Computed example of a mutant assay.
Amino acid sequence: MAGHELDRAFAALADGTRRDIVSRLTLGDATVGELAAPYDVSLQAISKHIRVLEVAGLVSVTADAQRRRVHLEAAALAGLVRWIERHQRAAEARLSLLEAVLADLDSPTSPNTTPTKGKTS
């Protein structure tokens, strides 16, 4: 995913209602009315949320007679996951290196430790 696509996707998911909509769509496609049912807001408000998700590439909308069906674009979510996992691996590698350095410093055979005179273990 390119930087601007990530920006739009993360911005879209910054809103709790839109995250709820994405969660609901993991169960399968739904109409705008079905997505709006749990909320005390207008269909127009839910349509605006869906539009933000659509512009971000997270969902697609198709017309089905009088209804609009919303579909979750799993490939877009996979792009977000890859970005997160790449940064998670880098952070974990850095933490592992730090842990190794600290373990080496604590080691009694480490050249960086000096024995204390007169003390025995």
Score class of each variant (00 low, 15 high):
1 M>Q: 09
1 M>I: 04
2 A>K: 10
6 L>D: 05
7 D>S: 02
11 A>L: 06
12 A>K: 03
13 L>G: 04
14 A>G: 15
16 G>L: 09
16 G>F: 00
16 G>P: 02
17 T>R: 15
18 R>I: 02
22 V>C: 07
23 S>N: 10
24 R>F: 09
24 R>Y: 07
27 L>Y: 08
28 G>V: 01
28 G>Q: 05
29 D>G: 07
29 D>W: 05
29 D>P: 11
31 T>P: 02
31 T>E: 01
33 G>R: 12
34 E>Y: 02
34 E>C: 04
36 A>S: 15
37 A>T: 06
38 P>H: 00
39 Y>N: 02
39 Y>S: 06
41 V>E: 12
42 S>Y: 03
44 Q>P: 04
45 A>E: 11
46 I>M: 13
50 I>K: 08
50 I>E: 05
51 R>V: 01
53 L>C: 05
53 L>M: 06
54 E>K: 04
57 G>T: 05
58 L>F: 06
59 V>C: 14
60 S>C: 04
60 S>L: 06
60 S>A: 12
61 V>K: 14
61 V>L: 08
61 V>F: 01
62 T>F: 00
63 A>Q: 15
64 D>E: 14
64 D>H: 12
68 R>T: 07
68 R>H: 15
68 R>E: 13
70 V>N: 11
71 H>E: 13
71 H>K: 14
72 L>A: 09
72 L>T: 07
74 A>V: 13
76 A>N: 01
77 L>M: 12
78 A>T: 11
82 R>E: 10
83 W>H: 10
86 R>W: 03
86 R>N: 00
86 R>I: 02
87 H>P: 01
87 H>I: 01
89 R>S: 12
90 A>C: 01
91 A>V: 11
91 A>I: 08
92 E>N: 11
92 E>S: 12
94 R>G: 04
94 R>Q: 12
94 R>M: 03
95 L>E: 08
95 L>R: 11
97 L>P: 00
98 L>H: 07
98 L>T: 12
99 E>H: 05
105 L>R: 05
106 D>Q: 08
108 P>F: 09
108 P>C: 11
110 S>C: 09
110 S>K: 10
111 P>F: 13
113 T>L: 15
114 T>P: 03
114 T>F: 13
114 T>R: 15
115 P>R: 15
115 P>C: 07
116 T>G: 02
118 G>N: 00
119 K>R: 12
119 K>E: 11
119 K>D: 02
119 K>C: 03
120 T>N: 00
